[in-house]
Design a protein around this nucleic acid. Structure first.
Length: 113
RNA sequence: CCAGACGGUCGGACGACCGCUGGCGGUAUGAGAGAAACCAUAUCGCUAGAGGAAAGUCCGGGCUCCACGGGAAUACGGUGCCGGCUAACGGCCGGCGGGGGUGACCCCAGGGAUAGUGCCACAGAAAACAGACCGCCAGCGCAAGGACCCCAGUUCCCCGCCGGCAAGGGCGAAACGGUGCGGCAAGAGCGCACCGCGCCCCUGGCAACAGGGGCGGCAGGGCAAACCCCACCGGGAGCAAGACCGAAUAGGGGCGGCCGGCGGGCCAAACCGGUGCAAGCCGGGGUGGUGACGCAGGGGCAUUUCCGUCCCGUCGCCCGGGUAGGUCGCGUGAGGCGCGCCGCGAGGCGCGUCCCAGAGGAAUGGUCGUCCCCUGCUGAACGGCAGGGACAGAACCCGGCUUACAGGCCGUCUGGCAUU
RNA sequence: UGGGGGAUAGUUUAGCGGUAAAACUCCCGGCUCUGACCCGGGCAUCCUUGGUUCGAAUCCAGGUCCCCCAG
């Protein structure tokens, strides 16, 4: 249990969210969300492709996304959704405050509070 | 001081807050009659937490499973001066030979070309049993022509024939040794000296090889990162190895119950025939039952054909294998650090000391501050502002190689300039 | 993890030790009143760095990128 919300781990789960869910692109990240039928804690997954850079850059990108999501969801817990955060080139370059703001606005756009 | 060569080493520092993973300890809960212990989860505290290349995956090993009676050979792949180091290596160290640099030093797949095959374009006469284009020389011929003032001519040139030669010219990356002297009609290792080459001997060295002497009289062009020959090495697969636990569904085995695509067997009923007065008996018949006997069909025995052989439906219970998933493998090791001894060195030996990452959609982070370094702008020193801080992220482990890399530090040495 | 293959003009491919070839595209010129067609000409660090060789796109080694196969 690395985060209060559970982690998405399996490839079919990611594919389901990508196929059925909604997508909100932001300068610092892309958010995909899919409402679930149950009311359990939100599940969250991270995707950083090889296009972004080498292993060091991909690690840095994923860790900043993890931290932004952790800080926001600690104050505003969500339930009944699966979230996938996709890292992009801007994730690494953007200031952390702006990255958190991107995540917040993406959630608002989804209708998830 | 400047320029350079080689070796080693570091890979920003400190702090605050919020987090992550492992370990240890405490507390609470699961928990059942209770206690202890154990396990799981949550939480609190302490503690540890990426590299010199973790990278590329190019070699070598450990480890695990599989195969295998031993050995050898063939094929395939790799390695290739000599000696040493090492668990081993295609690695490293020390030598040797060749090449480069004024030098410190650097670079080299560096065995075999009289085992064979093949290739050497263009140019050039000729490119590998040598041969002779121009040319040089001797002899013979000399019709015509020329030179020698004219004529003549046993003269010369030119020309032709035959022969000797390989110095010179020219081509080429390379021309069947090089330079010099002698010699000769001209020449030629034809002779001599030196150099090169080959063979033999001696000396030094473990050896590669080096030095010296003698002989040969030049034979044997180059290419083996062309085929090849020789010597040596190599069983295969890889932690998704492998071991253990083990859902749902399907499938396997055992036991019991139930029944069927064709054929035939057996049993029984309707019905038919025969017989008998009749009960009945005999034969046919086959709606039903029975038993998995045969056939068909399907499947297994690596693949295809044939043959052979084994198996076969459905329901219930039990059993074992095994998929998803989980646990282990998993870090005490060819281990780090320090000291001493041996060795030119790679390295070896001894003593002391330390325990030092273990994830699994994958922890080792996020934000901020101070300092350090670099760049740009501004600026009288000082300073101010802005931007940046290399290459890169463990995935079973270890020894190497290769590649990437901002900047810094230490040591040894070389060349030059200046000073004493 | 293990194995195999490739990189040549703008594009697709030849070439396998000795002048780098073809088709299409593009550019220039010609033809035409203009355009097309047609005719002539041009366009190459042979991915990169070293090495072997007299000579390398070709052979060997290191590197970069891409593709494929098996698990």
């Amino acid at each position: 249990m690395s985060l209060p919300p559970e982690r998405l781990k399996r490839r079919p789960e990611f594919r389901l969210v990508a196929a059925k869910g909604r997508k909100a692109p932001m300068p610092g990240l892309v958010l995909q969300a899919l409402a679930r039928t149950d009311d359990g804690a939100a599940r969250i997954g991270f995707t950083v492709t090889k296009k972004v850079g080498n292993a060091v850059i991909r690690n840095r990108t994923r860790r900043r996304l993890k931290e932004a999501a952790r800080l926001w969801l600690a104050e505003h817990p969500a339930a009944g959704v699966d979230l996938v955060l996709i890292g992009r080139d801007g994730t690494r370059k953007r200031s952390f405050g702006a990255l958190k703001d991107d995540f917040c606005r993406a959630l608002a756009k989804m209708g998830v509070t």
